[in-house]
Amino acid sequence: MEQLDDLDRQIVAALQVNGRASWTDIAGVVGTSVTTVARRAQQLLADGIVRITTLTRLQQGGDGDLFLVRVSCAAGQQLATAAALADRQDVRFLAVLTGEHDLIVEVQIPNGAGLHALLVEELQSIPWVRDSVADLVLHTYKIGQDWSRQLLGSASVLSEPRTLHLCEDSHLDELDGRIVALLHENGRASFQSLAKQLGVNESTVRRRCEALFRQGCVETVTLVPAAALGYEAEVLLFVSVEPSKLEAVAARLSEHRGVRFVAALLGQYSLVCEVIMPTTADLYRFVTGSLGRIDGVRSWQANVEALTVKRGFVVVPWAQAALAKARNTAAGSTD
């Protein structure tokens, strides 16, 4: 993937702080004109390098159970399997991995729904799936969106989205739900365009949106491939921890900006940790100087993320071409 220049990287990093920040505010942070920021950012969005979406508490894992499923595929069928899984509405995160397993799939199972249908009937019905291992996510300690913030000198002028609070789905009425659905497709949609699509007054949409963001019912997330920002290492670490020190280890890992995701698992490993580092040398320093020195860490297994396919229930645009090719190849083989 072609890397972005320094200015584009700074614009993307600003959007990761706040995906709905005005071009004027971003221009002030990165030190260029509003026209330049608007032109470059809109080009990044049009080219599918950046995708801005909005997630509710449910989409961040607030209700139901989350399972991390590691999947092994038939040789050469990783992308075909990923394409079949990407279409599922209950898949929040999906990536192609190196290592013992070929795919990692984060699935949200609603309260009261059975896991058997997914793991035994549906997953195994995909012809290229050879086996799978499912771990229950017991607790999520961190979901970080600002791992690229070090590319910015300062972003204090940008209003960061509030942490999601524990509201129930019933907190959102029918109009709120329609607004959120449109923002999920385009996290930067203007109040005017939302009002036009919904057939309501712009002032109503503005008031509803401001309340949703202010109260923490929704959060804007900016998706971008790490490689485009010059980051070489994107890795999932499955960590074995002494049970009595689980909370302390998770807290230490969560302190690192390069750690995007930390969660406790019920399975072979105690924690899963997603790490993004600028270089392989930085990753080496992290595992030897940070992870390896945390009291309570016993061992870990590492998997490089070769391709992110889905994040936040969104199929990322930079994976679309590979998925389309895999679907066409699979369709041709069945003719």
Rank of each mutant, 00 (worst) to 15 (best):
Q3W: 03
L4A: 01
L7Y: 11
L7Q: 12
A13G: 12
A14R: 01
Q16C: 07
N18C: 07
I26S: 08
G31C: 13
S33D: 03
R39N: 15
Q43W: 09
L45C: 01
A46I: 10
D47Y: 07
R51W: 07
I52E: 01
T56M: 06
T56S: 13
L58D: 15
G61H: 06
G61A: 03
G62N: 09
G62V: 07
F67G: 04
L68C: 11
V69N: 09
V71M: 02
A74K: 13
A75G: 07
A75K: 11
A80L: 05
D87I: 10
R88C: 02
V96E: 13
L97V: 11
D102P: 15
E106M: 11
I109V: 13
N111S: 15
G112H: 06
A113L: 09
G114L: 12
G114S: 14
H116P: 05
A117S: 15
E121T: 15
S125P: 06
R130S: 06
A134S: 15
L136R: 14
L138T: 02
Y141Q: 05
I143A: 06
G144E: 07
D146G: 10
S148L: 04
R149C: 00
R149I: 00
S159R: 10
S159K: 11
S159V: 10
P161R: 00
R162H: 12
C167M: 11
D173G: 02
G177W: 03
I179R: 04
V180G: 06
H184F: 06
E185Q: 14
N186C: 05
R188L: 10
K196R: 11
V200F: 07
S203K: 08
S203W: 04
R206Q: 04
R207S: 13
C209L: 03
C209Y: 02
G216T: 04
T220N: 12
A226H: 04
V235P: 10
S240K: 10
A248V: 09
L253V: 06
A263Q: 01
L266S: 14
L266Q: 14
Q268G: 13
V272W: 06
V275L: 11
L283A: 05
F286T: 02
V287H: 00
N303A: 14
L307Y: 14
L307S: 15
V314L: 10
V315I: 04
V316K: 09
P317I: 07
W318Q: 02
Q320H: 15
Q320M: 09
A322R: 14
A322N: 11
A322W: 03
L323S: 00
K325T: 12
A326E: 01
G332F: 07
D335G: 09
